[in-house]
Design a protein around this nucleic acid. Structure first.
Lengths: 245, 245
DNA sequence: TAACTTAGTTGACAAAACACACTAAGCTGT
DNA sequence: ACAGCTTAGTGTGTTTTGTCAACTAAGTTA
């Protein structure tokens, strides 16, 4: 670090006006993208096409582009769109993982976001330093097989967050397509919780927190009575129940 | 960025083995340190002694020392110890704030931790680029007066997190000293919630989640019946109630 | 049009929360 | 010594809430 003058170092770091010239950690944004398919809850993984961990599977992610991303969420949104084509997902910051050893290239820091999407909305893409992308089922607290970096631990945190929010929030709606029936919503909860719920009690809970609205005119068919279709209310931040579902 | 060869840039960034030479964001760790005093819930603020925001009040924080801090939590612990002398606090990651504009020096990222401490344990210190440290009462969602950077928003997030956890977790114990009575614990909840609780119901809740234990032999005096002293159980991660307190 | 399927509602019973009154155990002043 | 005060800690009846199962509704199929 003694090779350059202080001014030059500042220039290199992009800190012409700064008093700080500490070495900076590497910063990336990683995504735990969840979807509920026929196989159950799945997470989108990408196979790394470059060192380190070349060939290993990892959570999709990327560097922050300081000249392109306005903020962290924008960076997460950019990565998500790159991999799935999705534009307006449910996105939630899960946490940060940072230490000296998780990346062999140096002290690094990964900001994790979790995204909940409907599998209908996805068109998988890959490229850049990711050679392949695939859905992998969630087994217990993670996926089968190892993951690059500390992504197994990060994924575990995201799964825990998701599971705990299922118990007492409206979050699972985001795993459904735009329009859905109450029975479908109940099934989402049941599959995530791994237990069956009472229809009457479930509907009471849903009615208490007023977060969905019927869509007029439409119904959905099987060989039985058709069900009312619903959608998320316009301005909806995840609402919490004051009791478990 | 074109002034230097790729290899030189790598050297400067401390990334001799890296394929990445993106410009990196500035990274810091900031702390929302809460304590419950006679005046109510208070947060520890530090007055900045250097640009930017020189003279303004801010959450105590600092850069990550990549050669000293093993991980993010260690960095938070170092900052906390520096300001308060506390060694084993309750520390919880609240979130990350990062965008292009929050710091005039460039794209920056702040990892926020919240700490809950007993005011008895503190010996305030200051120095470095902080000229002064002081406890400031929490009013509504923040403190009276402006804060440096986006610390008002960060503090608001931390307060929200704290308040919501009070309703359904054992977290408030960390605002008490090592030994305490059930009445004191109830008072902590009441002051944080801003409403009174039923003694009988409160004790039932506390007994349900088995997280404190009586300390033998000791009592605490006033001019009345003495109360049993309790302490946190050894291995205690914050436990959640399945109902509001 | 009877039998079947899933949607959506109602109501009786049981369990839990709530409010409040009670007992317990110390101190203080006369 | 003991009445009266204060705070600790427990018990109880009422009201609210959750649970479970049966019921009605509205379509399809043969």
């Amino acid at each position: 670090m003694k090779l350059y003058t202080k001014a030059k170092r500042r220039y290199i770091y992009g800190m012409e006006n700064s008093e700080n010239s500490y070495p900076r950690p590497i910063v990336s944004v990683d995504l735990a993208i969840f979807a509920l398919t026929a196989a159950g809850l799945e997470v989108l993984l990408a196979q790394r096409g470059a060192r380190p961990f070349e060939g290993d599977w990892a959570l999709p992610g990327g560097w922050i582009h300081v000249d392109e991303d306005d903020d962290l969420e924008a960076a997460a949104r950019r990565v998500l769109n790159l991999k799935t084509g999705i534009v307006a997902p449910y996105l939630e910051q899960v946490g940060v993982s940072g230490d000296a050893k998780r990346d062999p290239r140096g002290w690094s820091l990964s900001v994790t976001y979790m995204a909940l999407i409907s599998p209908d909305d996805v068109t998988l893409r890959h490229g850049g330093n990711m050679t392949e992308a695939a859905w992998r089922p969630i087994i217990a607290d993670g996926v089968d097989g190892p993951l690059a970096f500390d992504h197994a631990a990060i994924l575990k945190t995201a799964i825990t967050r998701l599971r705990s929010k299922v118990e007492y929030s409206t979050l699972p709606v985001h795993l459904l397509p735009h329009a859905f029936t109450l029975s479908e919503l109940q099934m989402v909860y049941e599959r995530l919780l791994g237990r069956s719920l009472d229809k009457s009690a479930f509907r009471k809970r849903i009615a208490e927190v007023d977060f969905i609205e019927p869509i007029e005119g439409e119904m959905r068919r099987a060989s039985n009575r058709p069900a009312q279709l619903y959608r998320l209310k316009q301005v909806h931040a995840t609402v919490f129940f004051d009791r478990t579902i």
